[in-house]
């Protein structure tokens, strides 16, 4: 009997990161907005959803609020809170240029991390929030055995993981469709125009700052949704799950796959996590137990450098619209 649970868990994580990267792709790949604090929106979404769904009696310490609402409301709250955070950043920064936005997003991620870490009353402090609701929680611990034909060994999976993967993939598909539709709409064409040459778009009478704010808010909301999915997947969140490496990983996945191409960035996320996970199956070298763990990130870095050298546009570069071909 083959155990597929590990692969299901990996697929869930890749799916959640896929949504996160799609949000970043809307910022950078579509609009050219430099966002170095994407993890901040991910964190706001995770904590918003956790606080909205957490039962007061399950909070290990007294927190700002614990509303004990259904997870669907938590997900909506995650989008709204992260979107509002995006709006508050975008309003002053968009007009100041891309460097100001990059610095402000970086500062925002750091600020929100410090705030949640230091202020226990807000959301549990250093040790975060646990006992979070999981959708279809009754299925946890129930396994499903799937007999395969042709003499192949049967496989078994945790039913909850299958269902949660379905939820994640459903939302990933929904996000993908949303951004694809936005991208091919007049709104999306303006965003891409801003990315290529903002002044030209302004000459055509478009208020580019308004479009950039919309793009930034939508991308932040999408990152918030992925944060909500992370919170309800792990059932516990702590500030040290929202480190700058999350932003770094999302950027690498986007560049790897090809920014501006939604399908490409999703494949980038899959390749990045797949290659990273595969390194865990490399056995330790006797006498050098730290060598493989140390080389793990180096290997990923080498892949990225090689890609930049020979395929700087990413594995799947953005295709020009059909009418321009």
């Amino acid at each position: 009997m083959i155990n597929l649970n590990f692969w299901l868990d990996m697929a869930i994580v890749v799916g959640i990161y896929g949504i996160l990267v799609l949000g970043l792709n809307l910022h950078w790949g579509y609009t050219g907005l430099l966002n170095f604090g994407h993890v901040g929106f991910f964190m706001v979404g995770a904590y918003a959803s956790a606080l909205v769904t957490l039962a007061p009696q399950d909070a290990s310490v007294e927190v700002l609020f614990a509303l004990d609402q259904p997870i669907v409301l938590g997900m909506i709250a995650s989008i709204v809170f992260a979107g509002v955070a995006g709006l508050l950043i975008a309003l002053p920064a968009i007009r100041l240029g891309e460097i100001a936005l990059a610095l402000l997003t970086l500062a925002f991620a750091s600020l929100i991390h410090s705030l949640i870490t230091g202020e226990e009353w807000l959301a549990g402090g250093t040790y975060g929030l646990s006992n979070l609701q999981k959708p279809f929680g009754d299925l946890i611990g129930t396994s499903v055995v799937l007999p395969l034909p042709g003499g192949l060994p049967s496989v078994y999976v945790n039913l909850w993981s299958v269902v949660y993967l379905g939820v994640v993939l459903g939302l990933l598909l929904g996000t993908y469709v949303l951004i694809e539709r936005l991208g091919s709409s007049p709104f999306g064409r303006v965003l891409k125009g801003i990315r290529e040459d903002e002044e030209v778009v302004e000459i055509f009478g478009k208020r580019t700052s308004k479009f950039k704010i919309y793009s930034f808010v939508i991308g932040a909301g999408i990152a918030g949704l992925s944060g909500s999915l992370w919170a309800h997947y792990t059932g516990a969140i702590t500030p040290n799950a929202f480190l700058p490496t999350v932003t770094f990983t999302a950027w690498v996945a986007m560049i790897l796959g090809g920014s501006g191409n939604n399908r490409g960035v999703l494949i980038g996320a899959f390749v990045l996590f797949g290659s990273r996970t595969m390194t865990y199956f490399v056995p330790d070298i006797p006498g050098y137990p730290n060598l493989i763990p140390t080389l793990r990130l180096v290997i990923i870095g080498v892949i990225l450098i090689a890609l930049m050298q020979w395929k700087p546009e990413g594995l799947f570069s953005e295709q020009p619209p059909a009418h321009l071909e």
């Binding site: 009997m1 396994s143 499903v144 055995v145 007999p147």
Partner: peptide, 9 residues
């Protein structure tokens, strides 16, 4: 298909 057989592995 996942519901074809449910048991404790």
């Amino acid at each position: 298909a996942g519901c074809t057989t449910t048991e404790d592995p």
